[in-house]
């Protein structure tokens, strides 16, 4: 598995320096400030898209679930980081990998932005299947570009996708546990005409 991972990473990373415009775009898509904030922005949009009070209430609960799923993803990624200190490709393979990203100091597994993206994508599936697929695609693009850039292995991305996709179920359980409190918070927000 490790050999497969390494070979795929080396093959993908053989691109940098070959075609400048592609590298230029890859660096943009891999940014911490493009897709990750977009995931959060989509959640804000979902708060308002319901056409009637019932639908809006349902979507706002889903938005809240997505936020909890993000928090849970970050938490699970941090746990994995503390337990599996997997060296980044540019550290483990310094002669083969050309880093096109900043030299991150945290462990490679799992890929945090992909986990967050999948958490939001799966959480928002009941709102719109197309939106969900778009978000999952964006999460995969971030993962792919970071493998290309030498910052992650493919299995870091795949593992993160599994973790992220599982978190909305956990978030759903937490919401059920505190259901009356969440509903009451939304009622208070409605009293101020902001929800």
């Amino acid at each position: 598995m490790n050999l497969f991972d390494t070979e795929i990473t080396k093959w993908l990373n053989s691109g940098p320096g070959g075609f400048g415009p592609l590298d230029w775009v890859i660096k943009l898509l891999a940014s911490d400030y493009l897709f990750p904030p977009m995931f959060a922005l989509v959640i804000i949009g979902v708060i308002f898209i319901g056409r009637n009070p019932e639908e809006r209430f349902r979507y706002q609960r889903i938005a809240f679930k997505a936020v909890i799923a993000i928090a849970m993803s970050n938490w699970v990624v941090a746990i994995f980081n503390s337990q599996f200190d997997r060296a980044r490709p540019y550290v483990a393979l310094p002669d083969d990998i050309e880093l096109m990203f900043y030299p991150a100091t945290d462990p490679s597994f799992p890929a945090n932005p992909t986990a967050v993206g999948f958490a939001v994508a799966v959480a928002l599936f009941p709102v719109s299947r197309r939106l969900s697929i778009g978000l999952a695609s964006a999460a995969l693009i971030v993962g792919f570009t970071r493998v290309y850039a030498g910052a992650f292995y493919p299995t870091d991305v795949a593992g993160a996708a599994v973790i992220g996709a599982a978190m909305p179920s956990v978030a759903g359980g937490i919401i059920r546990l505190f259901d009356p409190a969440l509903n009451l918070a939304l009622r208070v927000a409605r009293a101020f005409a902001v929800a």
Partner: peptide, 14 residues
């Protein structure tokens, strides 16, 4: 960006 997202969301929500 949030201003923009809210405009889009509110437009879909009528």
């Amino acid at each position: 960006a949030t201003l923009g997202v809210v405009q889009i969301g509110a437009s879909y929500g009528g």
